[in-house]
């Protein structure tokens, strides 16, 4: 069905991704697909890494951990953005192209008033990506 699944992850809030991660794991097992975990970082140092390379290592370790615990083929793909707060959507869309994913599984929060002011990341990616997009709530 699908062979390459992309899962955007926020390493700072992994706890909020739980459901999306397990859905991605189950589907990957079902179709024997590879899951690529995509993380976005700025070039400036953050708590997740002093350099983009450190961030990439951390993401790779996360992917390896997921692969081992879920028993799936896992890969990591780190993206560097100039301004991750505002450029998340275009960066994720670029990641879809770069990873060649045919399915994107994204975690999303319940819509609230702020979503009326600016669109949610999941919504924008679903509108613009060429791949199929699955938004997982909760």
């Amino acid at each position: 069905m699908y062979s390459k699944i992309m899962v955007p992850v926020d390493l700072r809030h992994v706890d909020k991704l739980g459901h999306a991660l397990s859905v991605a794991g189950d589907l990957a097992k079902l179709w024997d697909a590879t899951v690529t975990y995509v993380g976005v970082t700025a070039a400036a140092p953050s708590d997740l890494g002093h350099t983009p390379e450190e961030y990439a290592e951390r993401l790779a370790a996360f992917a390896e951990g997921q692969g081992a615990s879920l028993g799936i083929k896992a890969a990591a793909h780190a993206m560097v953005s100039h301004d991750p707060t505002t450029d998340l959507d275009p960066t994720l869309l670029r990641a879809v192209e770069e990873t060649g994913a045919d399915l994107v599984i994204m975690a999303s929060h319940l819509p609230n008033i702020a979503d009326r002011l600016w669109p949610s990341n999941g919504g924008t990616v679903a509108t613009r990506a060429t791949a199929s997009v699955m938004i997982v709530r909760g």
């Binding site: 700025a42 140092p45 953050s46 708590d47 301004d83 707060t85 505002t86």
Partner: peptide, 11 residues
Amino acid sequence: GGKVDAPVPQR
């Protein structure tokens, strides 16, 4: 505190 990816409402 030097974070460049703080939430938009702060800006």
